[in-house]
């Protein structure tokens, strides 16, 4: 740091010059004073320039810090946007997947997430009731299955077995409804010929012989190569 003391001392010495006559001559002293003064001025100027430069540097650092902060903010926003886009894309995919699954299974019902293990288990247990001869219980179990798994690929079979169980339980109206559901909704399903035969069985159970014969003819014309058509032919022949 600048210390004014030395040159003030010198100045004092110069001012008290007459008391020390003979130490310097006049011209020499004056030259020395000018030299010191110039040197001093130069040093002060250099110092001021350097501190100004430092201040400018400090200001620049401050401005750059602000700039970096803004960039950081931009990065934070972009990361956030990217996360949101990622999440939205995932949501889109899940939604699309659910819709496709619904289309694939041909179901028109709500696309609830299906647990395949529970689906198979419930179907099997209903079928076992039917095999065990518990027809009324089996019909109820299949109805429950149909309500619970609206998008299930077992649906045509479930309706078929529900119809069969209801027919055995002498609930003819309910049986007809189930068989018709199979025939109307899944006419290309492997169970459709048997379901149509089931409709004929229901008509027979109600004593509607004419309707039964028409239905049996329909089985033969619509599904000529099916096992159901063979038994329809046998029944018409009798």
């Amino acid at each position: 740091m600048m210390r004014p003391a030395p040159w003030i001392a010198l100045l004092a010495a110069v001012l008290t010059w007459p008391a020390h006559a003979g130490l310097f001559d006049d011209a020499e002293a004056r030259k020395e004073i000018i030299r010191i003064r110039d040197e001093h001025t130069a040093r002060i100027e250099a110092l001021e320039a350097s501190s100004r430069a430092s201040l400018q540097l400090a200001n620049q650092i401050e401005a750059m810090k602000a700039e970096v902060a803004k960039l950081r903010g931009d990065v934070e926003l972009m990361m956030h946007d990217m996360e949101s886009v990622k999440k939205r894309q995932q949501d889109f995919y899940v939604d699309l997947d659910a819709r496709l699954r619904k289309l694939e299974t041909g179901g028109a019902g709500p696309s609830a997430q299906i647990d395949p293990a529970a689906e198979s288990r419930d179907y099997e247990s209903a079928l076992n009731l039917l095999k065990g001869g518990k027809y009324a219980e089996a019909a109820t179990a299949f109805d429950a299955f149909i309500a619970a798994y609206a998008g299930s690929s077992f649906l045509p079979s479930a309706h078929f077995w529900a119809g069969s169980a209801a027919l055995q339980a002498k609930d003819i109206a309910r049986a007809t409804q189930h068989f018709n559901t199979v025939v109307n909704q899944w006419p290309q399903d492997a169970r459709a010929p048997d379901a149509l035969l089931g409709v004929a069985n229901c008509q027979r159970a109600m004593g509607e012989r004419r309707l039964e014969q028409n239905t049996l003819k329909a089985v033969i014309s619509q599904y000529p190569d099916s096992a159901a058509a063979k038994s329809a032919k046998q029944r018409l022949g009798n």
């Binding site: 740091m1 001021e48 501190s51 100004r52 201040l55 200001n59 401050e62 401005a63 602000a66």
Partner: peptide, 21 residues
């Protein structure tokens, strides 16, 4: 929203800085 010292205040800052020194 700024924290940099404007040019017009440099002489004032310099005077006080030197006074403290």
């Amino acid at each position: 929203d700024s924290f940099t010292i404007r040019g017009q205040y440099m002489p004032l800052i310099e005077a006080h800085g030197r006074f403290l020194a």
